[in-house]
């Protein structure tokens, strides 16, 4: 038995967005005559990826039960549209990444599920680079403290001039 297929595409093949942009995409579900769909969920979510537990946030969600689906429902592409929020922005860190995606999930009556994620970028936060950080701040890291900065030394309890 062939599994159902799900194909998701963004309008204009563009998958970079800014906060407040209207995300538009289409998905096509490939079904065999023997496939019966119990329900379909479409969502726009962000999730974290890294060394810790995965956090997930749901920005848009829609579930259609089989009663709302007809034999012709999947003969044409289905559309998803939503205004994207201000945060969290996509981020490519070393121990943590924030990823946005459009997720389509099919539920079959026998309990099987088929999920397809299509990733996109929200915002343009530059990925963290240790090398770039070192290069940008190398002079400050290597140099001796400026004597004039001493008055901001937070450990200087006696003078009471600590800024922090």
């Amino acid at each position: 038995m062939i599994d159902p297929s799900i194909r998701i595409g963004f309008e204009g093949d563009v998958n970079e967005f800014q906060p407040g942009d209207f995300l538009k995409c289409e998905f096509v579900v490939g079904l065999e005559p023997e496939h019966v769909i119990h329900a379909i969920e479409t969502s726009v979510i962000w999730l974290t990826e890294g060394k810790g537990d995965t956090d997930i946030g749901v920005h848009f969600f829609e579930r259609r039960q089989k009663q709302a689906l007809t034999g012709d429902t999947f003969k044409q592409p289905q559309r998803i549209g939503t205004v994207l929020p201000a945060s969290p922005l996509s981020y490519e860190g070393q121990i943590l990444k924030i990823r946005w995606c459009v997720r389509v999930r099919l539920f079959l009556p026998d309990g099987r599920q088929f999920t397809q994620d299509e990733y996109f970028q929200l915002g343009n936060v530059r990925p963290f680079s240790q090398a770039a950080f070192n290069e940008a701040y190398q002079d400050l890291i290597d140099s001796d403290p400026d004597p004039e900065d001493q008055e901001f030394d937070s450990t200087d309890k006696a003078s009471g001039s600590g800024a922090f």
Binding site: F10, D13, V14, N15, E16, E49, G50, K97, R99, Y119, F120, Q121
Partner: peptide, 8 residues
């Protein structure tokens, strides 16, 4: 050109 996501 669309960006590509590289998963770890």
């Amino acid at each position: 050109m669309p960006i590509t996501v590289q998963h770890n």
